[in-house]
């Protein structure tokens, strides 16, 4: 049970002068329950890739399989797929439309054909999950702060109880505090529900401490697909494609260069601290 991409290719504006290749021969297996960071520079194809996963875009070559079924077969129920593979877009402004927060979150379950009671129950649970307090339920979603809007947008997708949750740049445009809040929230959703989560971002720092696997996209191709520590070992190559490893990785590498035998695979500040302490204790 997983998502499988088999030699997937995608071309923008096919047949015109503006024709560009967004994805080239992408092969991926995304097993159930994994927490994945999908990273790439602007225009690397990461947004196109996630839209292929829930059938919003159709590949020009290759196949996408969900639980063993080709999602681009003519008789495949794409509407049902979209409730199972939930995608939260970058800007909450693109999806909020109802008079109040609560009805907006009900929109997804309502489209699934659930009865009113079930819709409301799911909306309530989802809003609680993302930490939106009762007092906001009957406010207009347009009056909320940026961080709150994003929570409501995530709740709107969570209410469909997806098996896979994809978040496209959920931290864009938020201040550091708001960013950490959202990332912690995603981590806690993952802990509670155990669903597959794909976090799309252009910032390594953001995803490093949370995810168990990082897929790096560059110019429509998968460049690295490995655990964070192993991906960040390629700090130099990452820089060449406009990405960067976390700050602590650089510090540890510099220490190593100076002749201090420190382990360089740490990706969070805490791990780096432990690595340095280890050396100091030995010394």
């Amino acid at each position: 049970m997983a998502i499988i991409l088999n030699h997937v290719g995608y071309i923008y504006e096919k047949g015109t002068a503006m024709e560009t290749c967004a994805l080239k021969d992408v092969n991926l297996v995304i097993p159930d329950g994994q927490f994945i960071g999908l990273i790439g520079h602007t225009g690397s194809g990461k947004s196109t890739l996630v839209q292929l996963l829930n059938g919003l875009e159709q590949p020009d070559s290759g196949n996408v399989y969900y639980n063993g079924e080709d999602i681009h077969e003519a008789d495949y129920d794409k509407k049902a797929l979209r409730s199972r593979v939930g995608l939260v877009f970058q800007y909450p402004e693109h999806q909020l439309f109802e008079m109040d927060v609560f009805s907006d979150v009900c929109f997804g379950p309502k489209n699934m054909g659930l009865n009113r009671k079930e819709c409301e129950l799911r909306a309530y649970t989802a809003l609680k999950q993302v930490g939106v307090e009762d007092e906001y339920f009957y406010q207009s979603p347009f009056d909320l702060s940026g961080g709150q809007k994003r929570r409501v947008a995530i709740a709107g997708v969570l209410a469909m109880k997806p098996e896979v949750l994809i978040l496209d740049e959920p931290t864009a445009g938020l201040d550091p505090r708001g960013r950490d809040d959202i990332l912690n929230l995603i981590a806690s959703i993952r802990k509670e529900t155990g669903i597959t989560i794909i976090l799309v971002s252009h910032s390594m720092e953001d995803v490093a401490r949370y995810v168990e696997r990082i897929i790096v996209m560059n110019q429509g191709e998968v460049m690295y697909d490995d655990t964070p520590a192993k991906v960040f070992a390629h700090a130099q190559e990452l820089e060449q494609v406009g990405l960067a490893a976390p700050q602590v990785t650089y510090i540890l590498k510099k220490l190593e260069k100076k002749g201090i035998p420190v382990k360089t695979d740490a990706i969070t500040v805490e791990e780096a601290r432990d690595a340095i302490l280890q050396v100091l204790r030995k010394g």
Partner: peptide, 16 residues
């Protein structure tokens, strides 16, 4: 372009 994005965002929530 914005219409396209909004349509996709709503279709992701099951809009038809």
């Amino acid at each position: 372009e914005e219409t396209d994005k909004i349509m996709k965002a709503q279709m992701a929530r099951g809009a038809d």
